[in-house]
Design a protein around this nucleic acid. Sequence first.
RNA 1: CGGGGCGUAGCGCAGUCCGGUUAGCGCGCUUGGUUCGGGACCAAGAAGUCGGAGGUUCAAAUCCUCUCGCCCCGACCA
Length: 477
Amino acid sequence: MAKGITPRSEDYSRWYLDVIDAADLAEHSAVRGCMVIKPNGYALWEQIQAQLDRMFKETGHQNAYFPLFIPESFMRKEAEHVEGFAPECAVVTHGGGKELEEKLYVRPTSETIIWSTYKKWIQSYRDLPILINQWANVVRWEMRTRLFLRTLEFLWQEGHTAHATKEEAIEETLRMIEVYRRFAEDYLAAPVFVGVKTPAERFAGALDTYCIEAMMQDKKALQAGTSHFLGQNFAKAFDVMFQNEAGQLEYVWATSWGVSTRLIGALIMTHSDDNGLVIPPRLAPLKVVIVPIWKDDSQRESMCAAARRLTESWHGRITFKIDERDQYRPGYKFNEWEKRGVPIRIELGPKDLEADQVVLVRRDTGEKITVPQDGLLPRIETLLEEIQASLFQRAKAFRDANTFDEDDFESFKRRIEEPGGFFWVHWCGNPACEAQFQETSKATIRCVPIDGSKRESGKCIVCGAPSQQRVLVAKSY
RNA sequence: CGGGGCGUAGCGCAGUCCGGUUAGCGCGCUUGGUUCGGGACCAAGAAGUCGGAGGUUCAAAUCCUCUCGCCCCGACCA
């Protein structure tokens, strides 16, 4: 595993200082565990946002915004929900210099405030479905934080939809987990397993929680996105009913789904190497950096001019930067842009100018390719896609090489420690057996696959009872 | 909250055991020069409440007491 990608904040801030630096805030304990997202890091988040937003719009969703504060009485309406979230909530007790009559919870998630609003919006089947997404920050007072993976405050999107039928809500839940799968694989270049959580791991208040699980370079699992089928739980809690075509009153069916800044952590821990970040080209805010090389001032002028001429037609078609800084030598610049993960570097020196060529350098492999200046932009666009595909293939090969079937519990306990990885094991469905995994191995059931894979007969690895389905087990973040 | 560790320049650290010149090193920063196809070099320079308070002493970064803060491991989790 690459040294710099251990999930420790000081490693991140040291290695990827320009992406995100939480240390700036850590001097005060009250804000420990929060993030400072510097411009380069925020640019990456904006790329993630933009792509997800496109995918949400394509599936018929609209953006909206709801309050940060949730009255305590709202939180209390859904029993499982409040039980799950109350212990990790920040609560406001004072406002305007006075003690509040009712406490306000800083949202850990917005189901309750949104469903209290949906009640006023929904009367008829004609008002359905409601397909809304919110980009927001939420607060969860975790005891232990890890930069990107588990911060006290994080940025995310949360979709909240309301439907007339159970079937439609389930369809929506599955549609959105599929959107997340596509985003993870096609944009983050991170292969994922799609599955459903066991009851023990379900979202508080959900009937089913679907998830995508990715493998990091240390072979631990990271839950990268979730989509919940909420049934009628929130509709009942907030008394949200509609009149169907036959004129009868029914409770509304609900879903919610979300991904967070944790995706940046997933990106780093999937692709980065000892030279720093590797950003998949489709998400890279800066796709190409050009480093002109010169020996003296007059040559500097001519090389930079040549770089500008070469890229004249690129504006608006690709994001690029010409590194004209005089205080650093080329080697320093090469290293710096590698650390920042820019997918392609172009070296342009006097020799290249003479030969009408440039040198392209791939961030993922370090390979240097000399190409003619003619037709450069299409060549780069092709190479970006090649890098994107190759990052995915590399990550997938790594995951597959570290994913095993396992049928013996003793052997499982050994192998989960060394060499580690993902294990497909038979499980009878009994929560007691699930608890055994956790206690004896510190591994958890990540999910039960929903695509029909690993559906085979066997015996529960813990108790030996018959099982028709293998489940994914791994240590996780 | 339990168990470890650490606070000395912007960052990373040495010095503390065994008190004693003007508190040091690397990186970074400033200025000048030479360099420039893989993290340049030389010279000069700026930058410190040694986490804080109290105590012991002729003398404290160093010893004692108290205190504040941070990091790591565990219980919680997107």
